[in-house]
Write a protein that binds this DNA or RNA. Structure first.
Lengths: 236, 236
DNA sequence: ATTATCTATAGATCTATAGATAATGC
DNA sequence: ATTATCTATAGATCTATAGATAATGC
């Protein structure tokens, strides 16, 4: 079946890469070892040389996805807390979730991660929780810092919301849109193209979390945000 | 296996009722005909007397769920478009999605519908689309009417958002929270109890869609909204 | 006499393993 | 000589059907 003999680690990774989109699309039970073997272009028996069982392969995939997502968002830690940073933060978050940049080797199908996330949430939620703990939960601290800076600067109206809600609501809004783009035809029709939708989501989120209209007018400049984004990326 | 003999329709419904939570929890492939037969307390063979196959049973379940959801939201059609109605509308929507009231017979497990919705979206999205077309898509018109009334009354700030985005963003925010409550342990930690979370979601959504702070202060009174809700429900 | 239901089982997968074979690295 | 890989197959499900039996309604 194979012509090229890979060493153990390479083959392992090759199997993981081939199996990831399958599990993402059809779920754990829906994906057969035969499917995986065919996608990876090896025999079924070989799967069991590298992984004790299907379950273990699935676990390896999840670990791999968690590890690969050392998000571009980490650059947020370097910025000084301020209203401006808050806006940039939200911009970054919406952008990163909606248009993921391939970092890891397993990012062949960029829909795999969101698919598995949502699948996980309709089941036991373990994978989703583990993944978020390794990524977005870490962003709460810098987010709070900029939020408090904005409050101090008088850029926020009074609001019943706590810090966590402001971040998660924004995050949530973005991931549903990611979810909406998974099926071949979208489910929600926002009547907007992708770029406008991103911008409007950010506007909605910023105002929703309590940013004053003057502050939105002052700091929400998408051309500038995109320029800043590209500039900062290079310095990393 | 059975002691009580039901007629064809009754047995059909009983099978649907028993199978719904199974499909919702474990998905189509994850649910075996044996599971279903056991849950419905009949033999596997009987399933095939009532449904040509597993696929067909699953279809019947989806039809049933779609039919059963003649939501309480329909009362919104009777109200006069206004800022007040807009606020009530959002209140109703968030409330209905987060705390579904059992209407149909198949509502034994109230998580079944959202589970199937989200599962569908990670696959072909067909069920989700069909369901929404029969429910929430119909609410766009009355929503727009009240939104325009609010605009005319000077209760909205200028915003780049279109009408569709304003409704869907609010809807989206709510369904993620529904999704978040599906797994045994939530994935997002909002640091709020259920009631406060509902209220804050509504605040965030109203402000996000552009409602002026004065209008929020004027119309967003949760005690009054709940009273109105109960009063109007009785008249139906 | 008709309709609902069951028991038993065929045929098709699916996971996993045992044992044989071919490629690589010393 | 070691490690990667394959072929063949056992054993466990899973869907679906054939044929027998028991309950209901006239």
């Amino acid at each position: 079946m194979v012509e090229t003999r890979l060493n153990s680690d390479e083959r392992k990774q090759a199997i993981i890469d081939a199996a990831t989109p399958l599990f993402a699309k059809k779920g754990f039970v829906g994906t057969t070892t035969k499917d995986i073997a065919e996608a990876a272009e090896v025999s079924e028996a070989l799967l069991y040389r590298h992984f004790p069982g299907k379950e273990s392969l699935f676990g390896a995939i999840q670990d791999c996805l968690c590890a690969s997502k050392q998000s571009a968002m980490s650059l947020i830690f370097k910025l000084k807390p301020s209203t401006e940073t808050l806006v940039f933060f939200i911009y970054l978050m919406v952008r990163c979730i909606k248009e993921p940049m391939g970092t890891g080797a397993a990012e062949a199908d960029s829909n795999a991660l969101p698919r598995l996330m949502f699948k996980s949430m309709t089941e036991d939620g373990k994978f989703a929780r583990t993944f978020l703990e390794g990524s977005f939960y870490k962003l709460m601290k810098p987010f709070k810092a900029s939020l408090h800076a904005a409050l101090g600067a008088g850029d926020m109206v009074e609001s019943p919301l706590n810090d966590e809600e402001r971040l998660w609501f924004t995050h949530n809004l973005t991931i549903v849109q990611r979810l909406n783009s998974l099926p071949p035809e979208p489910v929600f029709n926002y009547q907007r193209n992708s770029q406008a939708l991103i911008e409007d989501t950010i506007w909605f989120a910023l105002r929703g979390m309590g940013l004053k209209d003057e502050a939105i007018a002052k700091y929400l400049d998408f051309d500038k945000l995109e320029r800043d984004y590209n500039r900062i990326l290079k310095h990393t």
